[in-house]
Computed example of a mutant assay.
Amino acid sequence: MKAAILFEPKADLVIEDVRIDTPGPREVLIRTAACGVCRSDLHFVDGSFPHPMPTVPGHEAAGVVEAVGSDVTRLKPGDHVITFFTVFCGSCEMCVTGRPSLCVDPSTRRPKGAPPRLSRADGTPLAPFLNLSAFAEAMLVHENACVAISKDMPLTQAALLGCAVITGAGSIFNDSKLRAGESVAVIGCGGIGLAAINAAKIAGAGQIIAIDPVPEKRALAARLGATHGFAPDEPDLVKKLTALTLGGVDYAIEAVGRPETAELAWTLLKRGGTATILGMIAPGKAVSLPGPSFLTGKRLQGSLLGSTRFPIDMPRLVQLYLDGKLDLDTLVAEKIPLAGVNGALAALRQGDTVRSVIEFA
């Protein structure tokens, strides 16, 4: 099969024929239908976050089950599935307390000494990328790295649920638990931020404030439910938003991954408000907050994939799309073949695209 391989940071991905193993116990072979090109991929491709190489990036995908290994009970060939990179074991402390996105149990990975799931034609192992390696025509994953969904769901749109949408929507539904009439500011209007804005609209937020330097992204935010839009460098931004919201927002969602935007999220909160940091702040970077501000009862929290409970939340998001409430179509900037992956990554570096989605024949 064809896959896009990263051999070293800051280099173009190289498309090659690679080998994929047969499913082992609790493993599922998936024919990839679509995969979003996510800014999180770019962090690894550009070396901001370290990763073993060579590897096949990609982690926001959907496809069709082709084969299953022994002991697989929840999936069968022909099932349409969405994948997610935080594969869960189902029995550790994180899983049984309702936090499967935080599971790190090693039992979901192949044991030491087992053959690699992916390898080059010459037999060189390819390091698994975030448990998925989805820039490929097929994926071999643990059964708890995917969820079966309705076959009425278009797989191109379904792929976006695997990262951007569950992260953004989860920050509203799970992390914030936003109630009707409350206010939220979303900093960064890429795929994650736009999904948070759309979810805030579904939840009935009173004021939804989109903050992004790109006018076109603020326009998309308005289409998805934002009531106000601002550039982050607008003069007196904090004063304007404090006045607009009569003291600050109930919730702030940071979807950029920079210390200064995390600090802005904190500053925009009202007394007792909550800021959720979704962006990947690079190693070595730190967030600085004024000590006295903690006396206002504000809360700062991190989140991975919107604290999503995958088998429950993903089918619900699918149904919201099928019911016409969750807008995934607007998030797709372009549909490309696998050969266009380097161009999509370059567009992400420019910051002027929402989501490029690789469609596989």
Rank of each mutant, 00 (worst) to 15 (best):
A339M: 05
I358Q: 15
A265K: 07
L320M: 12
P116V: 00
S101Y: 01
R271A: 13
T308D: 01
A127M: 02
R110A: 02
T73D: 06
C146N: 05
G63N: 04
A145P: 00
T242K: 09
E8S: 15
D250P: 03
C92A: 14
D105R: 04
N174I: 02
M280P: 11
A243L: 13
D122E: 10
A255Q: 06
S133C: 06
T124G: 00
L6H: 12
L268G: 09
A145T: 00
I82V: 15
A222E: 14
M1F: 15
A3R: 14
H142W: 06
P232Y: 10
K335E: 14
L246M: 06
P128R: 03
L237Y: 06
L320Y: 11
I336H: 02
K240F: 07
K177W: 03
L268T: 13
G297M: 08
R271H: 11
I82Y: 11
G98Q: 13
H43D: 05
V357G: 11
V184Y: 04
R31M: 02
I209M: 13
P106N: 01
E27R: 10
L224Q: 04
T353N: 11
A185L: 02
D329F: 02
P315T: 09
I5A: 11
M94E: 14
P154A: 04
V104W: 01
T156D: 08
S176L: 07
R258G: 02
L220M: 09
L178C: 09
Q207H: 15
G78P: 10
R316A: 05
I202W: 15
L155G: 02
C95D: 12
L13C: 13
M94A: 14
V165N: 01
S150Q: 05
H80I: 03
M314F: 12
D152V: 05
L328N: 09
P50C: 00
R120S: 01
A210K: 13
E66V: 00
V341G: 10
P111S: 05
G306F: 03
V87E: 11
G181S: 05
G162E: 00
H59K: 04
A196S: 12
L126P: 07
L102N: 10
I5E: 11
G297K: 06
L237W: 08
L75D: 01
I277K: 09
V318E: 09
T97G: 13
G170E: 00
S101P: 00
G272P: 14
G69Q: 04
I197R: 01
T73E: 09
E254M: 02
G170R: 00
K112G: 04
G58P: 03
I312V: 15
L118W: 06
A243H: 10
P311D: 08
P125C: 03
M280T: 13
K112F: 07
P25D: 07
E359P: 11
K285V: 13
L75A: 03
I209F: 13
V65P: 01
C95K: 14
L322H: 09
T308R: 00
A169R: 03
A265R: 09
G297V: 05
L348W: 08
T267I: 03
R117D: 10
